[in-house]
């Protein structure tokens, strides 16, 4: 669960200045690092990826003044170092905390909460698909049209038709799908608030 940040405004300004002298660019780098760290915590099976990301920036804030003078490396790697320490601490705290008996299988969870948002989700998906543009929509449709074994050949052919390779196609589709997913999430949140 994400928590309120305790970074003082002056430290936050210093962090942005450390990331880049252009404040707008620095802000986008900050957001990217924030998202990346959250992913890293997720990949490491940490229980509160958002909270740990905030904690990483809190720790950074405490040292930012010195860092701006002394540190010469990539700020992303410094933050990754903090993240690794947090992962170690997390592992010590909750060793083997997650047992398979502690959570519901996703399929079951999907069914249980489906009632609440299924209609919303479908509406939002269709609305976001419209915003996506014909070309991207067609690519997503083609990419996900086949399942299981058939999709492998299908995607190889699709990549060939587009004059690219499967890996590049996968990344291209991932970017479109990530934007689509974000759009659907925002749309569901909006609808949920209105409810």
């Amino acid at each position: 669960m994400a928590r309120d940040s305790v970074i003082p405004p002056e430290s936050f300004d210093e962090i942005l200045a450390w990331l880049n002298h252009d404040r707008d660019l620095a802000a986008s780098i900050y957001l990217q690092i924030h998202a990346d760290l959250t992913r890293i915590f997720t990949f490491n099976n940490c229980s509160d990826p958002e909270g740990l990301t905030d904690e990483a920036f809190d720790r950074l804030a405490k040292k930012i003044h010195e860092l701006r003078q002394d540190y010469e490396g990539d700020p992303r790697l410094y933050l990754y170092g903090i993240a690794r320490n947090l992962i170690k601490e997390e592992l010590k705290k909750v060793k083997n905390q997650v047992s398979l008996d502690d959570f519901e299988p996703a399929a079951k969870t999907v069914d249980e909460t489906e009632q609440e948002t299924a209609e919303m989700r479908d509406d939002c998906l269709h609305s976001c698909l419209k915003k996506l543009g014909a070309e991207k929509r067609k690519l997503i449709l083609s990419y996900y049209a086949k399942e299981k074994q058939a999709k492998i050949d299908h995607r190889a052919r699709l990549a060939m038709q587009l004059g690219t390779n499967v890996e590049t196609l996968r990344v291209r589709v991932y970017r479109i799908r990530a934007a689509l997913e974000e759009c659907v999430e925002r749309c569901i949140d909006r609808k949920a608030k209105r409810k």
């Binding site: 229980s47 299988p105 569901i188």
Partner: peptide, 27 residues
């Protein structure tokens, strides 16, 4: 244990399921 644990992850899975379902049905 990694990707279906939190409510956010579960929502992500549901959205993915919807996208796939739409694409297969549409195709």
């Amino acid at each position: 244990s990694h990707y279906a644990r939190t409510p956010e992850q579960q929502r992500k899975l549901r959205i993915n399921k919807s996208i796939k379902h739409w694409a297969v049905k549409e195709a």
